[in-house]
Amino acid sequence: MSQSHKDILKLEGVSKFYRTRGNRYRRGGGTVVALSRVNLSLRPGEIFGLVGESGSGKTTAGRLVVRLEEPDEGRITLDGVDITHLKGGGLRDYRRKVQMVFQDPYQSLNPQMTIADAVAEPLITNKVGDPADRLERVLGVLDTAGLSPAEDFIYRFPHQLSGGQRQRVAIARAIVLEPSLLVADEPTSMLDASYSAQIFEILQGVRDQMGATIIFITHSMAAARYLCDRIAVIYHGHLVEQGPAEAVINSPSHPYTKALIDATPKFGRCEGVPTYGTYLPAPRPAGEQAGCPFFQRCALAERLLCSATYPEWRQVAGEQVCLCHFAAEGGQSPPPPEECRLGG
């Protein structure tokens, strides 16, 4: 790709496996494939959405990007530098540039620390500035995070704040070192709508004013549409569609993307959004290991092909790409006739 030299972050064939112990219900234990051969490139200053349901591997992807964990396969580069297996000082430097905001604001802050101390901690750990500088920076980021007047908040403890306020403190803490990349892991899923609109505004501000690149993890297609320049849809650890947010949402190509759009509440506000009906209400028996990851749920699947063969990425339109045997330029081509589908 011609733009690859401009990419800030690149994931190439990244996989992550978790070993699980067996129990009575899951035979013999085994391996959970949390992320499978993921390829992603982020452009500087974009808000990139990673959309999928719970358990699809979104948090795992975030934790790999901020290097809280190491991938089992593949390579991650930041500004062209391989960070896949960084350790020690190199990793510390990397963590200054790449920060994460977690889903649960009730668990991400230390209850014993004042807001000022919590936000200043990364500065102290990294020996940035003297106490006066630090206080100034803390006040600055609290303000950016919509906690103003910041002076009213610095001596409070997390339990004295609402969930929305705590999440803004978590964002302030994540941006105090002016990271070039911020991973926001479902930052609004535990908050009321009135607060989530504020969080969206703050993230836009972090991008616009600080120039940070943002990975916005969400289960909401509508939130992704609102906030993101480009999105990737993830299903069971596999990316299945990627492209400009507007294109993927207005003319989805992958049957799973379509299912997510079908399931979004639309009450009266979404005239003209078609219904796709591509999601099997009850899963069909699994295909082969090497088959399409969506086979069990896909109403359009063709038994012989989809159960056995992993699809290739196909270009749908412009930068929109889709991991489906039936994806075709200009949208989804019709599945094969019924009699062909029943073979095998």
Partner: peptide, 23 residues
């Protein structure tokens, strides 16, 4: 009104959401 205007939608213009200030 603020509640209705505070969540994003799948279609239509991407009008600015209306956060509700304060607590």
């Amino acid at each position: 009104r603020a509640l209705v205007g505070s969540f994003p939608t799948l279609a239509g213009p991407k009008s600015k959401l209306t956060p509700i200030p304060g607590e």
